[in-house]
Design a protein around this nucleic acid. Structure first.
Lengths: 151, 151
DNA sequence: GTAAATCCTAGTAAAAAACTAGGAAATAAA
DNA sequence: TTTATTTCCTAGTTTTTTACTAGGATTTAC
């Protein structure tokens, strides 16, 4: 029941990217330096964010990544789903519209999984990237050791 | 970001146990037969529930397990925490009262992890075992293939 | 042309999950 | 008192997933 480094690092990376990409594209190298995440690994994470349509890229020297849409329209849910796949701790076939599940009508735990899934979705979908960037701008007193934190 | 089989099977097992242990202790063998979960694995799960004080055991022939307290006082949160350890998708040191985290004061994602942790806790702590047993009694029309479901 | 970037795939080492196995200890019933 | 049934406890093993690393192709500004 843990969020992987994909989700944890990826969210940090995108907040960083959002914060620094207003003028020019932000390169993997620069995010890596600021956030203390391996370039090669970051590359993969950002690529997932691109596939999900959250960022777009500019190739070649001086290139990098920029947000593909307004920060106010990107939720933490969008970001984490892009990186982690679906966020449901239990993928119960009986919960899906077209779900094939023999035991569906006698299944009691289904109710529990559904409630958990819903509460997570609701939470992550209502936090938008712009709030986090705003918060980050306020807090950023230089000098703290960002790389010490694995979350 | 998945709940392991420990949590999924374990919750099912405890609902079963609660349902059948009102007169006599319920053996691992019988839970295993009804729920289609390996005896040897179930044994470990139930042992975790015992360590957590949710069930108590009667050794020897004719023995088995019974609930250690009233179903109305056992929450899904108690059960899942006994089986999965803590339910926080991100264990952020900065969230703990005594948390050691260099980046605590500049960390933006902390807020996100906190919100997610809280919403999960709230959800699982408000569903009580007796509700699930009640639900199970209503639904149990015999004949459905419980073993087909992995959740 | 060269340096700085993204892009893409594959490989790999470590960790965690999901069981399996073996046998000791307790107890009820024969 | 033996036997069958049950919990108890630890360790081993296989499979899956995670978290990277590696290599090189492609694009583009200067």
């Amino acid at each position: 029941m843990k969020l992987s480094t994909k989700g944890r690092y990826g969210l940090r990376a995108l907040i960083d990217l959002a914060q620094y990409s207003s003028e020019a594209p932000v390169s993997i190298t620069s995010i890596s330096a600021r956030q203390g995440i391996s370039e090669r690994y970051l590359e993969q994470l950002v690529s997932m964010l691109k596939k999900a349509g959250l960022v777009s890229s500019v190739r070649g020297a001086g290139g990098g990544y920029v947000l593909a849409k307004d920060m106010r329209e990107i939720s933490v849910g969008d970001i984490l789903r892009a990186l982690e796949g679906n966020l449901e701790p239990v993928e119960c076939a009986a919960l899906e519209p077209d779900g094939e599940c023999q035991a569906s009508d006698i299944c009691v735990t289904k109710y529990v999984w559904q409630r958990i899934n819903e509460s997570i979705s609701q939470t992550v979908d209502e936090i938008m990237l712009d709030q986090l960037v705003e918060e980050s701008r306020k807090k950023n007193c230089a000098g703290a050791d960002r790389a010490a934190c694995k979350n």
